[in-house]
Simulated assay, not measured.
Amino acid sequence: MEALNLTTSDPSTFILNGIPGLEAAYIWISIPFFMFYIISLLGNFTVLFVVGKELTLHKPMFLLLCMLALTDIGQSTCIVPKALSIFWFRSNGITVNGCFIQIFFLNVLGATHSAVLVIMAFDRYVAICIPLRYATILTNARIAKLGLVGFIGAVLLILPEPLLLQRLPFCANRVIPHTYCEYIAVVKISCGETTVNRMYSLVILLVIIGSDLILIGLSYGLIIKAVLRISSKKANRKTLNTCTPHICVMVMACTTGLFSSLTNRFGQGIAAHVHILLANLYILVPPMFNPIIYGVKIKELRDKVRTYICRM
């Protein structure tokens, strides 16, 4: 009742309604949320620490892993603390500006994450298809510049979203049925004309995910073509193994992200609590598994992590 009263009396505040219908299970739901977040932080900070400390790992591939780790930490930190405050303390209020800021950073980090995956695919293409030129094409400085371009591009693409939201009127209903400020969820509670907001969001989704999937697919298509030319089965297997962690991470990120975005726009038949849980898992699960996948599959990183663990 407090939440409903606040929506009419405080125009500067939205109410995040958590997961409608599952309020009685909040404590149990918070347990995996908290565990996934802690595992994600431990794994990604471990990657950042080990790569930062070891000069032998100051290579383009590991610089990309650090970029991926930073976006993973940022995305999960954007939503988990607020979600836990809803589950544990029923702290549902969020200021309008705070909501728009959360949308901006969450989507910028998501778009940057996607850009880093494209650069990783290009890195694997150069390493496998033109290995003799790898050191000259992909230097640390060039990788850093590509990452910066990806980040700036994400900011320019996402910046209109909160600006478009600011022009929308929000009337009596200020309850967002979600654990965080998802762009379309906020658009849906507006009492104004939202066609421009919906169209821009869909265009951005198709531009970011569509173009990135095409570039990733092109890179791996060329990689597979090069691998098939190798006559040795052992060399074939070794070459493909270097791509396995990247493929796993890309498939997990792209499929969950695309599914979550499309179901929110077109999945009217999907129960609200199912969509909200899937939207949270899309942000929580990949950051938890990414450092595990790379730590297991990349021998250099695995050995260095094991060395630091043994020293403890």
Rank of each mutant, 00 (worst) to 15 (best):
N140S: 09
M288I: 08
V149N: 07
Y200P: 02
A135L: 10
V155A: 06
G153D: 04
G147W: 02
F62P: 01
M250D: 15
N290E: 12
L42P: 08
F151M: 08
V116M: 08
A24E: 13
A172S: 15
G257P: 02
P162R: 00
R133F: 07
T77D: 05
L42A: 14
R237H: 14
K299G: 10
A279Q: 05
R229Q: 15
L301K: 00
C171S: 08
V47A: 02
N140Q: 10
L281Q: 07
P286D: 05
R142F: 09
I101K: 12
S232G: 05
M252H: 05
F122S: 10
A271D: 09
G147C: 07
I29F: 06
V155G: 00
V126N: 01
L205I: 09
S201T: 12
A141S: 15
P160A: 02
T242H: 09
C99L: 04
F289Q: 06
G18Q: 02
H246F: 15
L70Q: 10
G192N: 09
C191V: 07
H58A: 10
P160L: 05
P32I: 06
N140A: 09
P286W: 01
C254L: 14
P160H: 06
G295K: 01
A111N: 07
T179L: 15
I152K: 08
A226V: 05
H178G: 12
G74Y: 01
D10V: 07
H58S: 11
Q102K: 02
M250S: 15
L156W: 08
N44K: 04
A144W: 10
R167N: 12
E54W: 04
I158K: 01
C248S: 12
S91L: 15
